[in-house]
């Protein structure tokens, strides 16, 4: 009996904030995996690299926000329809800009991200050559 009362109490506390969120069940594939494991793996890999727009810094694979659920469903449905993951990413970037993707593209604004590692690589090579070759003569 006490258990039942406690359940009601918990549900009352529980239901209120959830109700405030929204009243509609999540999109069909928000929390449901695709039947084909290969497709699901593709979808999951893509979801890990898409940013949840409502959250501070989480991928849509790692978020409870309803909008992240809708985005997961969108990704899974499109993968199931045979669309290429990168095409889905491009579709989202076309709508939200580069912010939505954790995998930065090479653009006039982001090329240093990829040039700096190359510069570092060159610098590393140079330092090692200078330091290590000089020593050889000793």
């Amino acid at each position: 009996m006490t258990r039942a009362w406690l359940l009601i109490a918990v549900l009352a506390v529980w239901a209120a904030p959830l109700q405030a969120q929204d009243g509609v069940p999540p999109a069909p594939y928000a929390n449901v995996q695709l039947a084909d494991p290969a497709q699901e793996a593709k979808a999951h890999a893509l979801m890990l690299t898409l940013r949840c727009l409502k959250c501070q810094s989480q991928s849509i694979a790692d978020s409870d926000a309803p909008m992240a659920g809708d985005m997961r469903s969108l990704v899974r449905e499109r993968i199931a329809a045979g669309e290429d993951p990168e095409a889905i990413r491009a579709w989202l970037v076309e709508r939200y800009g580069d912010y939505v993707s954790y995998a930065p593209r090479v653009t006039p604004l982001t090329w240093p991200l990829y040039v700096i590692p190359l510069v570092l690589l060159a610098a590393v090579g140079l330092v090692l050559r200078r330091r290590l070759r000089k020593g050889d003569s000793a």
Binding site: Y99, Y102, A103, P104, L109, P112, L113
Partner: peptide
Amino acid sequence: LYPLLAEALGAKVSVGPPY
């Protein structure tokens, strides 16, 4: 720091695990 730099230049980018 890159997202901060991009924002100073007027754009928003995300840098994550794929980078």
